[in-house]
Design a protein around this nucleic acid. Structure first.
Length: 281
DNA sequence: ATGGTGGTCCTACCA
């Protein structure tokens, strides 16, 4: 294959994000998704295991030799598996709690054009949307504030960059099955939506899902386990996001919400979201 | 208005 500096040139590539809700329990679902869709990069959230317990060899066998892991026992945990090598990787401890909620790698599909990728698992925030009485909600709001400040001071979106992950907020009215019914439900309250909007504007970032799908259209990536017939009730929310820097906007080249995986046996309550980027031109 | 399900790991806690 033609290469510069000894590396392959990958002009068109795809990137997926999926809250897997235990990577060990659902490694067969991951395998099925990677076999069927073959994204170049897969970002996972809620891996729920220590780094030493991560099913690395399964990813290697599936053709993903490059894996970055940031895990902890039982909760949270993020990982990035890739066919494309990482030039560097790192993490940041948002809110200084020691939670495994962020992981970053630099990819170079074109050697002369590195792209920084950030994988996030934003705190869910508990049930009560009042930071004065619910420390989990206060943590979520503080996490969002720190994200906005960090991306401004570190100028994260001024280079080629992508943010993905379970941001645990459905910002638009069409990102939930019933806007009015969810105004006081954590994930769709006005204060969360406002703070997420500030994070988006702090890049500024382009919301890749809404770049492809009009904001008037309903769009979900998560359906609760507590609904006996999730597909029929269709009470979903768009909690999973892919944002790209303005510099990458013109390279967005397709989107897929892998809804069918919600109907698989013992599914995650989130489905994979996948974007294509074409760096030609 | 309430409770509905499912993860980790063994006792509740988290989503």
């Amino acid at each position: 294959m033609a290469s510069l500096e000894g590396r392959d040139r990958i002009v068109r590539f795809s990137l997926a994000t999926w809250n897997i809700n235990s990577v060990r329990l659902r490694i067969d679902l991951v395998s099925r998704f990677l076999t069927e869709q073959a994204p170049d990069v897969l970002c996972l959230q809620e891996t729920k295991c220590r780094d030493s317990e991560f099913p690395l060899s399964a990813f290697h066998k599936l053709g993903y030799p490059h894996v970055a892991i940031c895990g902890q026992k039982g909760y949270h945990g993020v990982a990035i598996a890739s066919k494309i090598p990482f030039l560097e990787n790192g993490r940041r401890d948002f809110c200084a709690k020691g939670d495994a909620r962020h992981l970053t790698v630099t990819l170079a599909p074109l050697p002369e054009r590195p792209i920084t990728l950030h994988n996030f698992y934003v705190p869910a925030g508990g049930d009560e949307p009042d930071p004065a009485i619910n420390p989990k909600f206060a943590h979520k709001l503080a996490f969002l504030d720190e994200m906005a400040e960090w991306m401004q001071t570190d100028k994260i979106a001024e280079r080629d960059a992508i943010i993905v992950g379970d941001l645990n907020i459905a910002p638009l009215e069409t990102d939930v099955w019933n806007h009015k019914a969810l105004l006081k439900v954590v994930s769709h309250t006005p204060i969360e939506v406002e703070k997420l909007g500030r994070v988006l504007a702090a890049g500024p970032w382009v919301d890749a899902l809404r770049h492809h799908i009009a904001p008037e259209e309903k769009l979900y990536t998560w359906w609760s386990y507590r609904s006996p017939d999730w597909a029929k009730a269709n009470k979903g929310r768009r909690l999973d996001h892919i944002w790209v820097s303005e510099s990458l906007k013109r390279h967005l080249d397709g989107l897929a919400i892998f809804r069918e995986s919600r109907g698989w046996e013992r599914p995650s309550d989130h489905v994979p979201v996948l974007v294509h980027l074409n760096l030609a031109g």
